[in-house]
Amino acid sequence: MSDIRTAFMNGKAFIPFITCGDPDLETTGKVVRAAAENGADLIELGIPFSDPTAEGPVIQGANIRALAGGVTTDKIFDFVMELRRDVKIPLVFMTYANVVFSYGSERFMARCCEAGVGGIILPDLPFEEKDEFSAVARQYGVDLISLIAPTSENRVAMIAKEAEGFIYIVSSLGVTGMRSEITTDLHGIIKVIRENTNVPCAVGFGISKPEQAAEMAGMSDGAIVGSAIIKLLEKYGRDAAPYVGEFVKSMKDAVRKS
């Protein structure tokens, strides 16, 4: 079992998403450390993909900037090894199935294990296809994080029963990106999750403000934020770390006791 559980032992969890190599790995290192120092409980590190079909325009932009900057899966593993010398909070990767498949799933999971990456989120790997990677992931102690969507309905229990690490609840229809309002019946989804597993669950997609984060974490075990952080990277580039740190602090303060 991975170290992901510990991320949920410090009040409600705040989980930022950061694309590795946007705009370069040196900046990513500073941003990750700023997030960790300001209360992030777990960090989702994005390995960029050329065609991220589950992302809205903001995270698509981060993928493009990162790939244009020359980042590769190998460079990211080396970077995480280096990061691990001082960053001790749980880390998970978020990428697309082809990035793992192309690297060789065993080689990929082995390097995750070596670098202390406890889980992986693949938005294009639904329940029906998880056998593609699940055996080898388990062998190396890497949790395959399951996603549950507003349209999952009769599938929620099935997914929750086999979930590991944590469950990523997709708050809204559509792709990643900031939303002014989240209208999905998350209470109903979370009730079914709780009846079927004790794996923690966190809500993501569309969260950009502390009040939203507090509301989402209040219902679940944590809040996940991507696009709002990527926006800061888009705006401040190599100088983004202090702004991300400040943002993470405001979000963690909002969710901690919710």
């Binding site: 639904p126 329940f127 056998d131 593609e132 399951s146 349209t151 997709v170």
Partner: peptide, 24 residues
């Protein structure tokens, strides 16, 4: 046990976001 559907040899399957699973 693989629950994957729509295979042609090793090819095919349903590698899509959970949001679309009930639609397909």
């Amino acid at each position: 046990m693989s629950q994957s559907k729509g295979r042609f040899g090793i090819h095919g399957g349903q590698y899509i976001p959970e949001t679309l699973m009930n639609a397909v």
